[in-house]
Amino acid sequence: MVFQQEGHLFQLWYPDSMTKVLGKQNLGSLHGYMHKYLKNMVQNLVGHASLKKMILEVESVTTRHIEKWANQETVELRTATADSSENLRENFDDFMMGLVSIPLAIPGTAHHKCLKGRKKVMKVLKNMLEERRAKPNEANTDFFDYVLEELKKDDTILAEEIALDLMFLLLFASFETTSLAVIVAIKLLTDNPRALKELTEEHEKILRDRENPMSGLTWKEYKSITFTFQVINETLRLGNVVPALFRKALKDVKFKGNYQLTPL
């Protein structure tokens, strides 16, 4: 009922303490046309068209490298310096520890470290954006390229601050949720040998049916792994890899005559 009434009775919302960390212009704090505009930008990055291009790289990803790959697809960290890549990783650790902590911005607290981590990450992203602006890629390969193209347009509604906040949010989302989902999936499959057996058989069948055993994964093969998709969905359902999603009531809401939600 809450999700069905999105934008009418309820609205995506975060507490002020989390907004300071995620950024005042983050996707969850913007609504209406701007929210839709940014959502379309993200879909251009991870939608079907992009996924078809990624499919061969997805096949080669190992569990050990999946977190690194997810970050690279959002922002091509391979083009940055090694120091920048390491700084992002270190500061995201501080960021995660303080995201849902008591919001006391006192030196030594988790929240204070979280805010410092965000500041450092934003500085790295700003520098990477400036480097890409000074030396653009010949072909659009990642989100930085897409953002720069949007910023060049005379009629754009995208501001650099909003774009950087979005990059920050996407990087954090892939850093935290991807690795956690993989760990949960491995644990669940270890505890359910029947599911592991069926999953293995589904992928072995793809290999057996190939004319060329050495050929890469095709889009048709990807669409055929229905049990794999069920494993992924069940992992996300049981793992609950997103730390928190908040909604606020826009008006008084009664549910089944027993409960009433009041706007903040």
Rank of each mutant, 00 (worst) to 15 (best):
F229S: 09
K197V: 06
P136A: 11
L207Y: 02
T228Y: 01
G257F: 01
E150A: 07
T226A: 14
L170H: 08
D142Q: 06
T226E: 15
V61F: 09
L151S: 07
H48G: 03
A249M: 07
F172C: 06
K39F: 05
K123H: 09
K197Y: 09
K153D: 04
H31M: 03
P193H: 09
D165L: 07
R208H: 10
W219C: 02
P107L: 09
R89P: 00
L170Q: 14
W69C: 06
D94S: 14
R194Q: 15
E57F: 06
E130T: 10
N87Y: 03
V147S: 00
G257V: 01
V147C: 02
M122C: 12
M96S: 14
S60G: 15
I106H: 10
K135V: 02
E176V: 04
E73V: 10
L151V: 05
H112V: 01
K254C: 12
S17L: 01
N192V: 00
Q11C: 08
V184K: 02
K205L: 14
E160L: 04
T81C: 05
T62Y: 03
K187D: 10
K20P: 00
T218C: 03
P213T: 03
K256W: 05
Q5G: 09
L56R: 13
Y14P: 01
L22T: 03
L189G: 12
W219I: 06
L196R: 12
T190R: 13
E86S: 13
Q25L: 12
L245M: 14
